[in-house]
Design a protein around this nucleic acid. Structure first.
Lengths: 153, 153
DNA sequence: CTGTTAGTTCCTAATTTTGAGAACTAAATA
DNA sequence: TATTTAGTTCTCAAAATTAGGAACTAACAG
């Protein structure tokens, strides 16, 4: 499999974006590759070769991405290879999952305020506002998703 | 300034959370400290001492946080010290800023689809859906903030 | 039962990140 | 002018992350 300059550049950009959100470099590039590649399902060796990385790096990154719910693979009988693909059809779940983890922070903030001196009411109010908005976001996001589904038509 | 066990634990939790979003460890702990500390404004040396970190680490982290729009300082005439504080009253801007950067990814995804083969329409549709939802989120978030302001009362 | 293939694991080296310490600067004070 | 203070910058070492290579495993193929 060969990639155009443009495709390689896009993979790099996606990779760097993913890195900034805390993803390991190789894992970020694998995500980029699967976005860009004409075949949306690639084998272990195709990924390894086209990105020029070792088997261990490939194996570790693929397993990480599966744990993070970003990847999947399909198989075909009579073919021992796994065909890895992004779980793109399930991106809605991923969005909700992402908000969940942000919302956990909200609980910590409430604990913080419970622990804080009462002599800084304005400051405490600001913290509670952040916490409350995160909870609101968490509650409203599914509805926003629904609204989006409708206006999309 | 002395911290209780509970306060220290909260600082650590906030620090770790921040680290997971890509923040440097010391910077994450400074954020934690400023959330938890009874005094919401702390001097360079108070921060350095209570976290047990070096001047260079303190200086670098404080500057980083200011660039990221998370921190601020106030001064008092006749006192050369800076009093650092979280820009908590401006958290709304930070939320919008955060979404901006996610939305940039949306543009990349549209470029990806422009570059992709037309022979995988379902896959391409999924990518465009993600891109479009990110744009929708970007557009709707200010309104969501407004709605939250109202129902908060 | 031997060989091959697909992928994993272990060990290690290279790279990157992080933060300490000391030297430094600029402003205020004595 | 000399000194102190508040914070910065530079250099370097420790620690963590990342990824390569080789040995390994499990499943199937001949």
């Amino acid at each position: 499999m060969k990639l155009t300059e443009k495709q390689q550049a896009l993979i790099e950009r996606i990779g760097v974006f993913q890195e900034k959100t805390g993803m390991q470099p190789v894992a970020g590039r694998i995500i980029g590759l699967l976005y860009v590649s004409d075949k949306p399902e690639l084998t272990f060796d195709e990924i390894r070769e086209v990105l020029g990385i070792s088997k261990s790096a490939t194996s570790n990154a693929l397993n990480l991405l599966q744990h993070l719910n970003r990847l999947d693979y399909i198989t075909f009988s009579g073919d021992r290879k796994r065909y890895f693909r992004l779980k793109l059809d399930r991106w809605r779940e991923l969005v909700l999952q992402e908000i969940d983890s942000i919302t956990n922070f909200s609980d910590t903030l409430q604990e913080v305020v419970a622990e804080r001196t009462k002599s800084t009411p304005e400051y405490n109010r600001n913290i509670l506002d952040v916490a409350d908005f995160l909870k609101y976001l968490h509650k409203e996001l599914p509805m926003l998703l629904q609204q989006w589904e409708e206006q999309r038509k």
